[in-house]
Computed example of a mutant assay.
Amino acid sequence: MVEEKLDRILITDTWLSLFEGAKACSLISPYSNHLPILITPEVVNTVRRRRRFCFDNMWLKEVNYREMVKHSWDKTIGMDVLLRITVCSQDIWRWGHEYNRDFLRKIEGTKAKFERLRTRRDSVATFILEQRAKEHWWKGGDSNTKYFHNSVKMRKRRNKVHKLQNEDGVWIDNADAIGSVMVDYFQLLFTATKW
């Protein structure tokens, strides 16, 4: 007879990181061909090591950085050079930690501001399209911007003047000449006539 273990345990990486010393063993069950599994979680105390110092070249562009290094170096005058370097590096490490944390906050704040501006721009663009389309049913229904965009294009095509008849009765279809016909018409219309 061939026996195979079919029962399994599923855990996540997070759980495993919390209980690295966990043990599992199969128990004997007289009533089933499946074996119950007993998990004995054991918390392993791990000593957190301090993160290694990493210098970031971006700090060199900060005015505050140079001032902090100068202040740190000046406050250790008279000490051994190795001790001065140690104190200065600790100050740099603390300053860099704060700077990077603030930098990440600024990035998140900028992303949030960008998102607000993007949604505002989208709503303004939709409003302009709706206004240009002269469609009012959108208030109670679907606001499909493609529809409004096509509606604006259709309205523009419909309102375009393709040809005009001048005062001599000649049809003008050249765009520049149409403009001249319009100017001449309105100048004649608004010119005061003496009675």
Results as ranks from 00 to 15, higher is better:
Asn166Ala: 00
Arg8Ser: 10
Lys111Leu: 11
His71Asn: 14
Thr40Met: 00
Gly78Met: 04
Lys163Phe: 13
Phe53Lys: 00
Trp73Met: 14
Glu130Met: 12
Ala175Asn: 05
Val161Gly: 03
Thr110Asn: 13
Ala22Gly: 02
Arg120Ile: 12
Asn64Thr: 06
Phe114Val: 11
Asn64Trp: 00
His34Cys: 06
Lys106Gly: 13
Leu38Gly: 00
Gly96Asp: 08
Ser89Tyr: 00
Ala24Gly: 13
Leu82Phe: 12
Arg121Pro: 00
Ala175Ser: 03
Lys113Leu: 13
Ile77Gly: 03
Val47Gln: 09
Asn33Pro: 01
Ile39Tyr: 03
Ser17Tyr: 04
Val47Pro: 00
Leu16Tyr: 08
Ala125Trp: 06
Asn166Met: 01
Arg157Met: 05
Lys160Met: 02
Val87Gly: 10
Arg105Asn: 14
Trp59Ile: 05
Ile92His: 11
Val81Gly: 02
Glu4Lys: 15
Arg52Pro: 04
Lys163Gly: 12
Lys163His: 13
Thr193Asn: 14
Glu42Phe: 01
Gly169Tyr: 08
Tyr185Asn: 05
Phe190Ile: 05
Glu67His: 04
Asn100Cys: 11
Asp168Met: 07
Leu38Trp: 01
Ser72Lys: 05
Ala133Asn: 06
His149Trp: 05
Leu10Cys: 14
Thr119Gly: 03
Glu3Phe: 15
Ser26Leu: 08
Ser17Asp: 14
Arg116Gln: 13
Leu27Arg: 06
Pro41Gly: 02
Gly78His: 03
Cys25Phe: 07
Glu115Cys: 08
Leu27Trp: 06
Leu129Val: 01
Met58His: 01
Thr12Gly: 09
Trp137Glu: 13
Met154Phe: 05
Met182Thr: 10
Ala175Leu: 09
Lys23Arg: 01
Ala175Lys: 10
Gly96Ala: 15
Phe148Cys: 10
Val87Pro: 04
Glu135Ala: 12
Leu27Val: 07
Glu108Leu: 15
Gly140Ile: 10
Tyr99Gly: 07
Ile11Met: 15
Val63Phe: 03
Gln131Leu: 08
Arg50Asp: 14
Tyr99Val: 15
